[in-house]
Write a protein that binds this DNA or RNA. Sequence first.
DNA 1: AGGAACATTAATGAATACATTAGAAAGAAG
DNA 2: CTTCTTTCTAATGTATTCATTAATGTTCCT
Lengths: 215, 215
Amino acid sequence: MTISAEKRAYRSIINLILTGQFRPGDFLLETEIAEKLGMSRTPVGKALTMLVSEGFLNKMPKKGCYIPLPTPEDAEQVFFARKAVESQAAAGAAIHASEKELQQLQEIVSKDKEALASRSKDTYSSANEEFHLGIAKASHNQYLEKWVRNIFWRSNVYVFYFDSFYKGKEFSVPQKTPMQHAAIIKAITEKDPKRAAQLMEEHIQWTYENLLLKY
Amino acid sequence: MTISAEKRAYRSIINLILTGQFRPGDFLLETEIAEKLGMSRTPVGKALTMLVSEGFLNKMPKKGCYIPLPTPEDAEQVFFARKAVESQAAAGAAIHASEKELQQLQEIVSKDKEALASRSKDTYSSANEEFHLGIAKASHNQYLEKWVRNIFWRSNVYVFYFDSFYKGKEFSVPQKTPMQHAAIIKAITEKDPKRAAQLMEEHIQWTYENLLLKY
DNA sequence: AGGAACATTAATGAATACATTAGAAAGAAG
DNA sequence: CTTCTTTCTAATGTATTCATTAATGTTCCT
C-alpha cells in the first residue's frame, strides 16, 4: 500500500512548520516544496489548498501561501476557538467514549506524569497531543474532531514560536498540566459532560494565560 | 477584476448541491463538472479538495468525492457541532460586534418577519443564512466564522433533503424562529455573552428537534 | 450455468506545458 | 537623488498529457 504524494506533501508541510524549518511570515513556495519532496507541483498545491482551508495557512491570490504572523489578536481568537470546540469535544467524549477509549485516555495520564518527570519537551509535546486529540476522537463527532485537530496544530505554532525565545533555557513542563488532564479524564470517565466541558475550558484558558506570561 | 476559476468552481459545486442537482450519495465527477463549467479539471479538483477538507463532502481514494448520506447519527453530530461553534460565535459577537454590525443584525430581524409573512422558502432561507453567518462574522473570530459557515451549509443539506419529501405541500416557516432570532440579537446588543450563547444553543437544539419530527 | 482470468474503460493521481501576473530590477525623466 | 515607467523574472493559475487503478464486462473452461 503506497501512500499518495498528496498525503505525503500534507504531512511534510505540517512537519516543516512545526519543526521550525519554516517560520511565521514565510511564504511556502509550491515549486520549492515540490523539489524538496521530489514530486510535482500538483500534489503540493492540493496539500497547500487543504492547509489554507483548515486555517493553518493564509493565502494571497497569485502570491502564495504563508504562515500567519502570530499576533495577540490571533492568539486570542485561536484560544477562544479552542475553548469552544475542545470543551464540547470533552462533553461529547463523556457521552460517547467507549470503554476501550476510556482505558486509552487513562494511560495518557500516566504518560503525562512520565513527561513531567523526564523534563523532555518532545515527550511532553507528544503526550499533550495524544491527550487533546484523543478526547476529540472519543467524542465520536467527526466535525469537532477535525476542528480540534486543526486548531490544536495552529495553537502549537504559538507554543513553539514563543518557546524559540527560550532556546537554551531548560524546558519546564507546566507543573499543573498533568493534574488538570487527570481531572478532565475523571469527569469523562464518570460520564459528566458538563463538568468535563467546564474543566477543559479552564485548562485551555490556563494554558493561554500561561503563554501570555512569556511576552 | 476577474474571479478565479477555482473560486467559481467552489461556488458552483456548493450551489449544485444546495439546489438539489446533486443528491446525497452522488459522486461528483471532476471531469463532468469541469465540462459543465467550461474549465479544466485542475481548478475543479482543488475546489473539491477544499469541500472535502471542510467536511462538506467525503472522499474515497481513487474513487472520487461524494455527498455524504444523511443518517440520524450524522445529523446528531452536525447539530451538536453547530451548537458548539454557533453558541460561542454568539458569545463572541456579544463581546466584539461593532455598532454597525449590531445595526445590520437588527435589520435581519425585520427581514425575518417579512419572510414569515411571505411564506417563501427562498426568502426564509436567505434571511436565516444572513442571521447565522452574520453573527459568526460579528464574532470577529476567523476560526469560528469559518467553522460556522461550513457546518451551517452542511446542516442545510439536511433541511433541503427532508424538505424534498414534502414537495408540493405548502412550505411552512417555523413560527417561532423570528422570535428566537430577535431574542439572540437582543442579548448580543446588550453585550450579554452567556445569555447569547445559551439562547443560540437552545435555538439550534429546537431547529434540530423540529427536523426530527419530519421523520 | 457458474466462475476464474483477462481485457476494456472511465475515472482519479501525477507530471508537464503553457498563460498570467505581482514584484523586483533597470532605466529614463524631472 | 528621487520618482515614474518599462522590462524582466519568478511564481502562481490553468490546461493538457500521461500513468494508474477500480469497476465492469467478456471470454473461455469446467
